[in-house]
Design a protein around this nucleic acid. Structure first.
Length: 643
RNA sequence: GCCGAAGUAGCUCAGGGGUAGAGCAACUGAUUCGUAAUCAGUAGGUCCGGGGUUCAAAUCCCCGCUUCGGCACCA
């Protein structure tokens, strides 16, 4: 006797074991067609799975969110089948579902070409039309190894060898083709549908390890229906339109060029944006009790040796050699980070516990020799400036400092228009400095502090910095993409290595704890994120040019100049456009330039000392008296301020 | 760094051994106009760099650089 509970609460009883297919048939004819898989006690399984004991059971259909992964995983298999039919010399390796599609990694001597992608996609459609039944089999380990070795599938054979004892070696067979796979899968290839598209070719290391050989990865996307596929492709196009590199050029914000790879040439408008953000951060930090410092760009190698960075990151540091090339030669590093320098400031004079917590901020310009393949517009550069700070405090103060930091961080993200923030907790990495006891202490302190700050945390094992565990703050942009920006790292190691100390209540010397923290991360990258988030249409307070005063006839020129002067006097960033052009052209150009406010003045406005206000994206106008306009817009454009 | 692709006017792109092309932008002139493109004209090039093959190379070959898409890395 087997009883199953369906999601609506109904209970069905069967004489003996029952398969998902049976259940579907039993519930109703529509379900035989709709059911893609079976969810037994919360785990998704093949529809053919036999339920042998009482369980909560749900039939998965295309409408369910867990169907998507199933669909995509199948798409990967169908792609692999297509590839091996077309190119039999190709070895298969792995092909999982991803957040927006799927990929499969292949081993093949000749690279795939974009033309191959078309052929493969066409063959995939054939395989869907064939509607091959997909069946799960369990093989013995030796059998599987012998089979894959015999077929020249060395990656699969290697993988089987390393599967843990006791785990089923499951093989999924579809038509003539089969693959080692954990599953689950759809009942047949026809159920996949045709809302998929192969997207791009890429290289990828076997098992994600750069020491291994490189495989060829084919990425695809796959959806339950054509409409969703179309929506995804539109989303991709939107992301392309918002690309900060494109906006940076179109909006004349910055450029990059070969002679300074990974370093930004900020143009006047881009630099205005940058400085606005800097001013904002500076005010927020000052209000939160930070002091600001500035430390050297070039620092002798010995300091980096002491801090431990030389050992771990030497390859990624820019260095400068000075001296006669013989005995007197010395090596300086262009600073890749600010923390060792901040400790030097802390070490000046004797610090008392009364001075803690000491929050030391720096808009520190850093250089890192990032691998060439990592560079990407403003998002990954070799020269950047962090909104960096180090909080020197006692162990007891970690709690309240973390709480305060989280509050500050949320306010600042909110001011920039980001409200969805997630937090990751990264604990000790394999390569690290400091004893296990120290790590125990640091991880415990940071965990407790984040709990006290009310954070919901996801664990990110082994991803901490070499000197301490970290909290990482990830924000979601308007397109739903994640960007890791903020960080808070608890460090018990650097103060020790660089010999930072304070005198406690007991009159004895103690080690302070250092909290490394940043909110934006780097200005460069954060500006890139902002541009993509807003598609270049910056909020008024951030817009490099906030207002253009545009004339209709040249008779209004001198009045337009007056208007512009009045706006600038009120600290608004305004420019005047008195070109001899039609107003339609001016409206078009300044709209395309994403200027938030346009003040149009013609004879009427000049005579009545008014302005016709047109907001970006709005087709209507408001007529305002000049004084009122300066007043309202001045208030509207104000930087979000502390207090 | 690794795999793959690309680099021609400011931008988007065509041209694939025989005189370097288009659209938009720019510039000049005319036009004084009421909310997303006024008209006419002009100018603009180390075809990424360096070698080679050839009577002749933007085009074919080799090397390098940069960029793009991924992978790996990210204090």
């Amino acid at each position: 006797m087997v009883s199953i509970v369906l999601p609506d609460g109904t209970i069905r009883s069967y004489d003996g074991p029952v398969s998902g297919n049976d259940i579907a048939r039993d519930i109703g004819p529509g379900w035989t067609k709709a059911a893609l898989a079976l969810c037994v006690d919360g785990t998704v399984k093949d529809l053919a799975t036999v339920v042998t004991r009482d369980a909560a059971v749900r039939l998965v259909t295309a409408k369910d969110s867990d169907a998507l992964a199933l669909l995509r995983h199948d798409a990967a298999h169908v792609m692999a089948e297509a590839v091996q039919e077309l190119y039999p010399e190709t070895q298969v390796t792995f092909g999982p579902a991803t957040e927006r599609g799927f990929y499969y990694d292949f081993a093949r001597k000749t690279p795939f070409t974009p033309d191959d992608l078309e052929r493969i996609e066409a063959r995939m459609r054939d395989i869907v039309d064939r509607d091959e039944p997909i069946r799960r089999e369990v093989w013995r380990r030796e059998e599987a190894i012998a089979y894959f070795t015999g077929r020249g599938e060395k990656y699969k054979a290697e993988w089987v060898t390393q599967l843990p004892e006791g785990e089923d070696i499951s093989i999924y067979r579809q038509g003539q083709w089969l693959d080692l796979c954990r599953g689950p899968h759809l009942p047949s290839t026809g159920r996949l549908g045709k809302a998929f598209r192969l997207m791009k070719l890429a290289g990828a290391y076997w098992r994600g390890d750069a020491r291994n050989e490189m495989l060829q990865r084919i990425y695809g996307t796959c959806w339950p229906d054509e409409a969703q596929l179309k929506a995804y492709l539109n989303w991709m196009e939107e992301a392309e339109r918002r690309d900060h590199r494109r906006l940076g050029r179109e909006m004349e914000l910055f450029h990059l060029q070969e002679e300074a790879v990974g370093s930004v040439f900020w143009h006047p408008k881009g630099w205005t944006l940058y400085r606005t953000i800097e001013t904002y951060v500076r005010r927020r930090l000052a209000a939160a009790g930070y002091v600001e410092v500035k430390t050297p760009q070039l620092v002798d190698r010995s300091l980096w040796e002491d801090s431990g960075h030389w050992e771990k990151f030497r390859e990624n540091m820019f260095t400068v050699t000075v001296g006669d090339g013989k005995e007197k030669e010395e090596i300086l590093a262009i600073k890749p980070m600010n923390c060792p320098c901040h400790v030097q400031i802390f070490r000046q004079g004797i610090k008392s516990y009364r001075e803690l917590p000491l929050r030391m901020a720096e808009f520190g310009a850093c250089h890192r020799y990032e691998p060439s393949g990592a560079l990407h517009g403003l998002m990954r550069v070799r020269a950047f400036t962090q909104d960096d700070a180090h909080i020197f405090c006692t162990e007891e103060q970690i709690l309240s400092e973390t709480q305060d930091f989280c509050i500050l961080l949320r306010i600042m993200y909110h001011d920039f228009g980001f409200t969805d923030v997630r937090v990751k907790f990264s604990d000790r990495p394999v390569k690290r400095a400091g004893s296990d006891e120290t790590w125990d202490k640091a991880e415990k302190a940071l965990l407790e502090a984040s709990r006290a700050a009310g954070l919901e945390i996801t664990l990110n094992p082994g991803e901490g910095a070499f000197y301490g565990p970290k909290l990482e703050f990830v924000l979601k942009d308007a397109l739903g993409r994640d960007w890791q920006c903020g960080t808070l790292q608890a460090d018990f190691v650097l103060p020790e290595r660089l010999n930072a100390a304070y005198v406690g209540v007991d009159g004895a010397k103690h080690r302070p704890v250092m909290l490394h923290r940043a909110i934006l991360g780097s200005f460069e990258r954060f500006i890139g994120i902002l541009l993509e988030h807003y598609a270049g249409r910056m909020p008024l307070w951030l817009a490099p040019v906030q207002i253009v005063v545009a004339t209709i006839v040249s008779e209004a020129d001198s009045y337009a100049e007056d208007v512009t002067r009045a706006l600038c006097t009120a600290d608004l960033r305004a420019v005047v456009d008195t070109r001899n052009e039609k107003i339609t052209l001016k409206v078009r150009e300044h709209s395309l330039a994403k200027v938030p406010l346009l003040l149009v003045v013609g004879r009427r406005e000049a005579e009545t000392r008014t302005v016709a206000l047109r907001r970006l994206g709005v087709k209507t106008q408001e007529i305002l008296a000049l004084d009122a306009a300066v007043d309202t817009l001045g208030r509207e454009a104000a930087m979000p301020a502390p207090g």
